[in-house]
Design a protein around this nucleic acid. Structure first.
Length: 270
DNA sequence: ATCCAGGCAGATG
DNA sequence: CATCTGCATGGA
């Protein structure tokens, strides 16, 4: 077990980063959070003048938590003196995580038309039943395990109508070279993702943003629709997403996260 | 109890 | 092209 001290940083807050809807495998502990990614886990605990990162693989989580990006610069570029600025002020500590692509694809297929607590529960059951047992938790399963489980398995753990999606996509991904997909531009990559059974525009955009770290995407869900229901009345999710990408360009993903967090946090206190 | 949740596929105008 | 409907499950 290693420990790294991360000095206080106005543009990083572990609670905000985990609660802005981009990740599902984490839980609160005293003074911080425990977070899981693939077959690794870490504790991030607030201390005086910063926080401690404790893990068997600190390098992995240092990268995962995206400490190399200059968020202060991004936030400055995005200030509009209006509601985006307010959202930035509220969610100043959000980092966009560098998550595993397969884990992101599976997680966001489960996310559709679902409540966040239930999404977490379904993913946790998948890990418990198919993932390797680690020291005190279960790893996210390998693609081979996911593909071998069968539709019936996904039904039994409560995935509902998404069971067929999970079965078919996990089998399909066995023959996909994600390293090749990484080379594609955003719209070509979105087309690849939307060709997956159960992946539409919104889920594809989440995978692009959270898995492939493409920031020229603006996932529009029910919360974002609420944010813009007055400004852009009557827009469908996909049309609104395209409009917002035009407006916010290469910063779309960041703006989306600040607005989502702000809107959702106003109602929910986790 | 009814509505809804980080929507999507398939069918129908 | 746009709009409509069914979908599994459980929390609010």
């Amino acid at each position: 077990m290693q420990t790294i001290f991360l000095p206080e940083n106005k543009t990083f807050d572990i609670g905000q980063t985990l609660n802005c809807g981009q990740v599902f495998r984490f839980h609160k502990i005293e003074n911080g959070y425990k977070v899981y990614s693939l077959n690794k886990c870490a504790e991030i605990v607030d201390v005086e003048n910063g926080c401690l990162l404790c893990s068997d693989d600190c390098n992995y989580f240092f990268n995962y938590l995206d400490f190399d990006t200059d968020y202060e610069k991004i936030q400055k570029q995005c200030n509009d003196g209006g509601f985006v600025s307010s959202a930035i002020e509220f969610g100043r500590g959000i980092h966009i995580l560098k998550q595993d692509i397969t884990e992101t694809i599976i997680s966001f297929i489960i996310s559709q038309n679902n409540h966040i607590p239930r999404i977490k529960m379904i993913i946790e059951r998948i890990c418990q039943k198919l993932g390797q047992e680690m020291n005190g938790y279960f790893a996210f399963p390998t693609l081979e395990k996911l593909a071998g489980a069968g539709e019936q398995f996904y039904s039994e753990i409560g995935a509902g109508y998404r069971a067929a999606y999970l079965d078919r996509v996990s089998k399909y991904l066995l023959d996909v070279d994600l390293e090749e997909w990484k080379k594609l531009d955003t719209s070509a990559l979105r087309a690849k993702l939307m060709a997956l059974y159960g992946v539409g525009r919104k889920v594809a955009d989440c995978i692009l943003l959270f898995g492939f770290n493409r920031f020229d995407v603006f996932p529009v869900d029910t919360w974002i629709l609420k944010v813009f229901e007055n400004e852009y009345q009557g827009f469908q999710a996909e049309a609104l997403s395209k409009l917002l990408v035009k407006k916010y360009g290469e910063y779309s993903g960041f703006v989306q996260q600040w607005l989502f967090f702000c809107k959702r946090e106003a109602k929910n206190v986790d």
